[in-house]
Simulated scan of single mutants.
Amino acid sequence: MTDAMADVYGGGPSLDVSHSGESPEPSPAGGPDRLPGDNPEPVEEASARVRLDLGYDGTDFSGWAVQRDRRTVQGELQRALAQILRLPSVALTVAGRTDAGVHATGQVCHFDVPETIWSEQQAMLLRRLGGVLPADVRVHSARVVSADFDARFSALWRRYVYRISDRPGGGDPLRRGFVLSWRRELDTDLMQAAATEIIGLHDFSAFCKFRPEATSIRTMQHFTVQRAADDSGEIVCELRADAFCHSMVRSLVGALITVGEGRRAPEWPASLLSRSSRADDVPVVAPHGLVLAEVGYPPDDELAARSAVTRNRRDATTPGCPA
């Protein structure tokens, strides 16, 4: 049974017969004897694991994770779920703990709930969440999944998208909260050349904010830099990896911008992968251009195996878990 669920007890106070001097006859099964009024054994109520797919505008949030006296996505969603499901609390496990100001269109999280409560609430949950949650958070789907599913540890990859506008007159004012405006023209061919060198299994310490006991070993599976085909002319940086450490995406994009401006050679970002600590000369771009777009998972029959693998800390030659 999960942490979010409680045992259900029944019966009244136990009857103390020790004063009688007599021992009741043993039960036929040889187990503990029961008398009228004895407490029965605790009964564990069956639970359901529920996956939520959601999106949010991160502008006014201090990131995903709950923080004291700060507005966070996790805090808002847990409060809404507890209110609707009439539970003391709900504990969410998330695929990607986005930073302050970062948005999401494809975030995934899960929680456990007693099956009786889920059966009563599932039909109207999305509509009720839409009425309780603030306008900058929306849950797109809610469904029961295998007990082996773990939003964080079962994930095969996360896909992030970072958008930049380098138009001379500035970007679209209606998209200013989701696109970084850059005053100098960027060469996307040079940026793509630099991005290609980043693909593979590496120690990304140079691009990550240090966190004790967290690994910076990651496998970059996909990294492209292209101009959008529409009239916006926005530069779209798309990154997919098994996991990302703190500030990693924004640092990589910052490094590529220096290449796109011609201030650094395309080989420079990859040369930093030999470092074992944060590179101070790597700029970290603003969070508002970044979106968590998608999280990928294996088939149900591979979930348990994937979770077991990713819970193991990685070294530079063995894939493992996200920090």
Results as ranks from 00 to 15, higher is better:
L174A: 07
F207G: 07
E197V: 06
D189M: 10
R227C: 03
L201M: 15
C237P: 01
F178V: 14
L190M: 11
E238G: 11
V249W: 01
R183P: 09
L239W: 10
G171E: 08
R175H: 15
R240H: 04
G170L: 05
T196L: 13
R227I: 05
V179E: 03
A243R: 02
R167V: 09
A193E: 15
G169V: 05
G170E: 05
D203G: 08
S216M: 11
F244H: 03
T188P: 02
G169N: 12
S251K: 00
Q226Y: 14
R183N: 10
D187Y: 08
C208K: 07
H202T: 04
R211N: 11
S165N: 10
Q221S: 08
R184M: 11
D242N: 15
L239R: 01
P168Q: 11
M220W: 02
R176S: 14
F178S: 13
G177N: 14
G169P: 04
K209G: 09
R163E: 04
R184T: 08
I199G: 04
C208I: 11
L174E: 07
L239Q: 02
F178P: 06
V249L: 10
A214E: 13
R175N: 12
D166A: 03
D166C: 08
E197A: 13
T196A: 14
H246T: 13
H202S: 07
I198C: 15
R175W: 10
S251R: 06
A241Q: 03
F207S: 01
E238C: 12
E197Q: 15
E238N: 05
F210N: 13
D187E: 06
R158K: 15
R159P: 00
P212T: 02
S205A: 15
L252H: 06
H222T: 00
R211H: 09
G169W: 13
A229N: 12
L186T: 07
C237M: 10
D230G: 07
R184H: 14
T196M: 12
F204C: 00
R167C: 11
A194V: 07
R250A: 00
L201Q: 12
V236Y: 05
G177I: 01
D242Q: 03
A194L: 10
R250G: 03
F178E: 14
S216P: 13
V179P: 01
T188A: 08
T224V: 12
D242T: 11
E234Y: 12
V249A: 01
H246D: 11
M191W: 04
F204R: 05
D166M: 01
E234C: 10
I217D: 14
T188W: 00
H202F: 07
A195H: 03
M220H: 04
S232C: 10
T215M: 08
S181M: 11
P212K: 02
M191F: 07
G200T: 04
E234H: 12
L180T: 09
G233P: 06
M248E: 06
A243S: 12
A228G: 12
S181T: 14
V161L: 13
R227E: 04
C208G: 06
L201C: 14
Y162V: 04
P168M: 13
S165I: 06
F223D: 04
D172Q: 09
V161K: 10
T215W: 02
T215V: 03
R175C: 14
P168C: 10
M248A: 03
T219C: 15
G177R: 15
D187K: 08
I199K: 01
V249M: 11
Y160M: 09
T188Q: 02
A195K: 00
R227K: 12
F223N: 04
A229M: 11
D230Q: 09
T196G: 03
R211M: 11
D172F: 06
